[in-house]
Amino acid sequence: MEAKDYLSPDVELQELLVKSGVHLGAKIKVAHMERFIYRMRPDGVYLFEAKKILERLNIAARFMALFEPQKILVVSTHVYGIRAVQRFCEVTGCIPVAGKIPAGILTNRTLKYYVEPEVVLVSDPRYDLQAVVEASIARKPVIAMCSTDNVCDDIDLIIPMNNRGRTSLPFAFWYLARRYLIERGEATPELLSSLTIEQFTAQPVPGEEYQQII
């Protein structure tokens, strides 16, 4: 069945998405992700469909909007996702875990940093495996951004996209933040216009150089 009418994404947004490289996959594909793949580029890189990515991002934002922001855990251990997660949580009020995931954050009640979220969002099920496993023990649903080579066990909602790019992760979190605020009814035109992708992008620290993975 088709999604609702207001989900039909406009062309400008799709162009921005393609420019940010969100539609790029990896050179490996797994069976779980096969149904999201649009085609293969001549150099062997699999591609996602821009329309489908936006549709899934909208669905994920709508699902997250069912919960209070204090009940959402957002996890990213990826270099380019850390700044994006921090900014996302500043804007929306969710619980950030950027960088190292503390062991037992969802399972050990005696710890100071123990949290009890209703839903967990991870940027890569392979890097953030700790969060996925703990969410499975705590019986919480997991939303995950998956590339073409991610195995999707213990995931309840997949966002098919490039989850390793310098520009693609900031784009995804920027778009999710916007949609989340709109779905929650907290968005004002000033707030939406003040959000830019640059705020979500990792700034290089002097003396330290980031490596581009894709």
């Binding site: 669905i59 709508r62 699902f63 019986r139 999707c152 309840d156």
Partner: peptide, 26 residues
């Protein structure tokens, strides 16, 4: 069982249950 339940992400009308095996096998 380590099952998970959540409302449908698309329509939010129905509760969806997933057992441990179905989650593991995606």
């Amino acid at each position: 069982m380590k099952a998970v339940h959540f409302t449908c992400p698309n329509c939010a009308k129905v509760t969806i249950w997933r057992c441990r095996i179905c989650r593991e096998l995606a």
